[in-house]
Design a protein around this nucleic acid. Sequence first.
DNA 1: CGACTATTTCAATAATTATTGAAATATTGA
DNA 2: TCAATATTTCAATAATTATTGAAATAGTCG
Lengths: 189, 189
Amino acid sequence: MNLPPLIQSFVLHFGEMGSRWGINRTVGQIYALLFVADRPLNADDLVDALGLSRGGVSMGLKELQSWNLVQLRHLPDDRRDHFVTPDDVWVIMRTLVEERKKREIDPTMTVLRELMLQTPHDAAEAHAQGRMSAMHDQIELLTAWYADVQRLETERLVQLLSLGSRIVKALEFKDRLFAVPGGKRESGS
Amino acid sequence: MNLPPLIQSFVLHFGEMGSRWGINRTVGQIYALLFVADRPLNADDLVDALGLSRGGVSMGLKELQSWNLVQLRHLPDDRRDHFVTPDDVWVIMRTLVEERKKREIDPTMTVLRELMLQTPHDAAEAHAQGRMSAMHDQIELLTAWYADVQRLETERLVQLLSLGSRIVKALEFKDRLFAVPGGKRESGS
DNA sequence: CGACTATTTCAATAATTATTGAAATATTGA
DNA sequence: TCAATATTTCAATAATTATTGAAATAGTCG
C-alpha cells in the first residue's frame, strides 16, 4: 500500500470496519480511497495505491456500483473507467439508507406481510402472529417516516435534525393546534 | 426443526437474513423463536425446536445477551436458564440502534477525531481531511439527533414519527417564532 | 479488420467464520 | 460434600466467503 499516512489510516480503518458493515475489506478500502481522493481514480490507481489484485478491484467496483455508491466517470483523452463518490455526504447517506433498506428490511416486510395472511392453528401461532404484526407495524411506521423526511431538501433535513428533541416543543404546540375538540381521551400517564 | 408452519417460516427467514444483518444463521433463528414464543424458552427448548447443537445454542444465547437483545429469566422450580425478548418492540428497536451504533459508528468516529488532529502534508491530504471532516460532522449531527429523540417516551416518539414530513410545517412556523429579527442572511438558494 | 488496451470472469486457493459435540466447568439440592 | 444436572468451552471440521491471477472477453482506435 502506497498512500500518505492520513489517507492510509482512513483506508485501513474502513477496511477493518468493512466486515461489521456487511462489506469486505477490499470494498471498504476502495470506497474509502475514492471518498477522500481529490480526483477520479481508475482501476490501476486503486491497484497501485491499495496493493490489491486487478480482479479484486474490478469486483469491488462492481459491488460499489450495484450499491450506487460510486459513479463511473470518463476523463478526456483517457479511455479507462474512472470512479468518484458523490461530493455531498448527504447524497451518500441517502443512498446508503435506501440500499440497506432494500437489502435488510424489504425482504422481511414481504415475508411478514405473507405470514399475516395465514390463519393460526393454535394459541402459540396466534401469539406469534401478533408479535409479527407488532414488528411489521413498527417497521412500517419507521420506513414511512423515512420515506417522508427523505423527500426534504438537505437544508431542511439538516434543520430538522439540528433541532433534535426540541422539535417536541413544536409537537406539543401542534397538539393544541390539531387537537379535535372533545376528541379521544388518552389512557396513559 | 420441529415448529408450527407459521413460526417455522419466520424462524427460517430470520436465519437467512442473519448474514445480511451481521449475525449468523444460528443466532438469527434463536432470536426469531424467542421473539414469537409465548413463554420463556430454555436451551433444550431451542435445541429441540431448531435442531441446533447444544454448544451452538449456548454461544448464540451468549451473543444475544451481549447485544442486550434477550434477557435471562428464571422459572419457579426449574433451575435451567430461560430466555425472553422484551415485549415492547420499541424497547427492542432502541437496543438495536444503540448496539449497532456502538459497534458500527463509534469506532469510526474515534478514528475520524484522531485524524482531524493531524496536520496535512500536501494538498491531497488536506482535501482528504476535509472529506473526513464532512463525514465526521454529518455523523455527529445524526447521532446527536438520535441521542436527543431517543430520550422521548415511546408514545411521543411514535407521535413524532407518525407526523412524518408534516413536521416541516411546524418547522416553518418555528422559523418565524425563533427567527432573530435582522438575523444572518443565508447564502444558498 | 487487427493490434492494442481495458475490463471481467472464474477456477483455484487462502482466509475466515460457523457449527458440532465431547470434555470441562459450574451450579444446585440433598 | 456428592451426585445430578446445566452450561460453557474449545479443538476439530464443515461451510462460507474473500482473493488472486491468468485467461477470456470487450472495447477502442488507426
